[in-house]
Amino acid sequence: MNQWTTADDHKRVLMRRRIDFMLRLLFLLCTSIGIVALAVLIVSIVVDGFRYIRPELFLNYPSRRAAQAGMKSAIVGSIYMLLMMAPISFVFGVGAAIYLEEYAKKNRATRFIQLNISTLAGVPSIVYGILGLTIFVRFFALERSLISGTLTMTLLVLPVIIVSAQEAIKAVPKIRRDASFALGADKWQTVSRAVLPSAMPGILTGVILAMSRAIGETAPLVMIGALTYISFLPSSLKDSFSVMPIQIFNWISRPQEEFHSLAAAGIMVLLALLLLMNFSAILLRNKFQKHI
């Protein structure tokens, strides 16, 4: 049996290996495009804006003179918005997800709601701006205030949070629910004690990623009228406010070169915050997974 492999077999294998190798290169190229783009972006921003990363950027209010301009009110505005948006959207988003996954009957009405939520997750953010303008600013007469902005952004992130929380809840194995029911648990006991603890890492990841998206959103806040020149910190919900992307947008649209560099510095701060949030998402996920 010295002929149990033939030259033909060998040739075919070599050919397949060559294809394998070329595809590997192709996939590597696909990956690099994204990474290279990000690297170029970061390098050009850092080159541009690094000299404006200085205490004044964080401590000063906006100014007509680039040398004195800072984004204190915008940073604080973004953080206030984040701190209010996170709990509100968590409660409503996870509540809706629990209802849809655990309580709602799987009938036509539920499927219709589901379809709408998935669609809402893809609606352009400017549309939410118009919605917020109509409902919060005008109808509820909340004016162009921090609370209007927060609620508008909450609407924007809710569909994303609902969908990701649903996925996390769906991923909890049925046998774990059965174990709980078989011990005499009712629905809420099962959801709160057996399902949610398992789903929490996924839910939190979804919430934080949605928050990162909201922190970088500009269009809806332009629509409801976040201001760019705010020389005070909001002290009540009805105060006017600014946020980082709005401030950056404003700086970029000015003719003076120095403001473009300031905008680059602002982008660096924003990116750093996003990185921090994504990092905390990973930390939270790991912390919860340890219990499993």
């Binding site: 194995p173 046998i175 059965d178 174990a179 078989a182 011990l183 005499g184 057996a194 603890p197 398992s198």
Partner: peptide, 17 residues
């Protein structure tokens, strides 16, 4: 009823606790 009638399943299904 389920408190009086316990059940053990085919796959071991402890909680992640």
């Amino acid at each position: 009823l389920r408190k009086r009638v316990g059940m053990v399943f085919q796959q071991p299904n402890p909680f992640p606790k």
